[in-house]
Structures are given as C-alpha cells and as structure tokens.
Simulated scan of single mutants.
Amino acid sequence: MQCTFLLVSDIHHNLDNIKNLKAWLIQKDRLKDINFIIASGDLVDADYITPLTTEKDEIEFREVIDGLENIGKPLYYIPGNHDPDSSFLPSAYQGKNENSKVTNFHNKIINLVPGLSMVGFGGSTAGVARNSPEQIIWPAFPRNTESLLAEKLPILLDKVEDEIILVTHIGPSKVGTTDVDKFPLRDPPIESGSSTIRDILEKSTPLSSEDSSQCNIMFNIHGHSHFPFGLSHLGQTFIINPGPLQDGRFAILTLENFNKEKLLIGEVKDFYKCSNRINSWFMVGLEFFVL
C-alpha cells in the first residue's frame, strides 16, 4: 500500500502559484498520484507582531484554503506565525461547505490510514542569534509557542500507537532545514528551529538496536525557514522542508507499507532493525520541485 503527499508551505497568499501548482500537476500527470495535501503554515502574510486578526487577513486566508481545496485532494493544514490568530482556534476555517475535505489539525491527531497517523502543531518559536540566544531577531508567535510545544506535544504523541508524521510550522533546532543563513559569514547567524522539537525527536529515536520502545516518529514535515528547503534527519526521523510555495517550491513524498524484513539486508539493516513493528511505513520517494 502506498500513500503520496503533496507538501506545501509558506504560501504567503500567492494565489497565482496555487493555480500554477494545480496546472503543473495536471500537465505532468501527477495529480492522480496524490492522496493528501499537507500545508505546514504561513498560508497568508498577516502581521504577527500585533496579532489581531483583520477582515483582510480572514478573507485572504479563506482564499488560500479555497485555492488549495480546488486542487481536489483532502487538505490538512496547520497555522504558521504569519496566519491569523483565529486560525489557532478549533473553529478555524475548514472549507467552503459541509462536504469539504479541509482539516485544520493544529493540536490534533489525524488517523490517515491503518498504521499511520499525523500529529499537527502550528506557530513558531523566536528566531535568535545562534551565538547569543538571548538576542531575539524576530519574536515567537504565539509568544508562548516553545512552552506550548513542551506541554502539549508529548501528550498528543503519547496517544498515538501508529507510526507518526509530525507536522509543525518550525523544524527542530540545529539541523540543515532550519538554518536560515543564506551566507556562511552572516552576522549574526540565526537559529530558527525549536529546541523542544529537537528534544522530542532525539528521544523518539533509539540509541541502540536494543532500544526500540519510542521509535515511532518517522517524519517531521515543517516550513518557516524559506532558504534551506530539503531533507535532513535526527536519528531515524527524516526531516523535510518542502520550501516556500510563495517562491514556487513544493515537494511530493511517497510512503509504502511493507514487511521490514525485506529491508534487513546490507548496510541498512542496522538502521531499520530497531523498529518493533513487523510492518512499517518507509519513504520510497521524495521529490523537490520548483514551478
């Protein structure tokens, strides 16, 4: 069994690129392959410094959701630091009508298919100077995001027995997909990732082949950091940043569920034998594109 995901993030109300993305999928004959769309925040460009939702923010937010829904696949999204503060509420916009397949899964668990679930959490921590963490380059939104992650995310994750796709707007600290330095000698270098997410991912991966009790976060999909799109990892957890759709970037991820014994050959056996599951979801395809 396969599941294929269209990964988008950081749209910032670029409606033209949503239309261009659908046209690309149709032209390349890829639309039929997509099972789900995951949008990992910053759908619009609301002011997170004075986070009072305006009518303009709400209208633009609905326009982006409607545009993504028009691609024709089930859409799951979380809010980012540039989305309206109302998008963090349980009553946030879910689509155009009661039959809509649009779900805001901030602070929620989604059971996608047997053995595979998603956990979502939006918002961003502060961007800080890497060598002087007390120097805030841009503030968090909501302001208590790091403490909310530490308090609420472990509770959600502990409820899931399936393998997990963790979807956050920010990624873990100190990995390639959250490094916002376009230039190595930038002063000061900026850390945009979350130390809480990093701690959670480190604890979820086994330290040895004998320790498999917490090996169930298979992927962390995030956005927020526009420049360092791509693939990284912490232990056995793959970390994916599709890049900003605002600039035409997106990714397609394909997972397949099969017996892990098929993979216990060659050098990969030490990587996979830690899993305590007979059948697991594995990444069989990850493609990054620009429109």
Rank of each mutant, 00 (worst) to 15 (best):
F141P: 00
F141G: 00
P142E: 01
T145M: 01
T145Y: 00
T145C: 08
E146R: 11
L148S: 12
L148A: 09
A150H: 07
E151L: 12
E151F: 06
K152W: 08
L153N: 00
L153D: 05
P154G: 03
P154A: 00
I155D: 09
L156I: 05
L157H: 07
L157Q: 01
D158M: 10
E161Q: 14
E161H: 13
E161L: 07
I164V: 14
I164N: 01
I164Q: 03
I165T: 04
I165Q: 03
V167K: 00
V167D: 00
H169K: 05
I170K: 01
G171W: 02
G171P: 07
V175I: 15
G176K: 14
T177D: 08
T178K: 04
T178I: 06
D179S: 11
D181V: 09
D181Y: 01
K182P: 00
K182Q: 11
K182N: 10
F183V: 15
P184M: 03
L185E: 14
L185V: 07
R186H: 05
P188C: 03
P188V: 09
P188R: 03
P189C: 04
E191G: 03
E191H: 06
G193W: 00
G193Q: 01
S195K: 13
S195N: 13
T196L: 01
R198A: 09
D199V: 06
D199L: 08
L201E: 03
L201W: 04
E202S: 11
K203H: 11
K203W: 08
S204N: 15
T205E: 08
L207W: 12
L207P: 05
L207A: 12
S208Y: 12
S209K: 14
S209A: 14
D211C: 10
D211I: 15
S212F: 11
S212N: 14
S213D: 13
Q214T: 11
N216Q: 13
N216E: 08
I217C: 02
M218Y: 06
M218G: 09
F219D: 03
N220V: 08
I221C: 05
H222A: 03
H222P: 07
G223I: 05
G223W: 03
H224L: 04
H224R: 06
H224G: 05
H224P: 02
H224Y: 07
S225Q: 07
H226I: 08
F227R: 10
F227S: 10
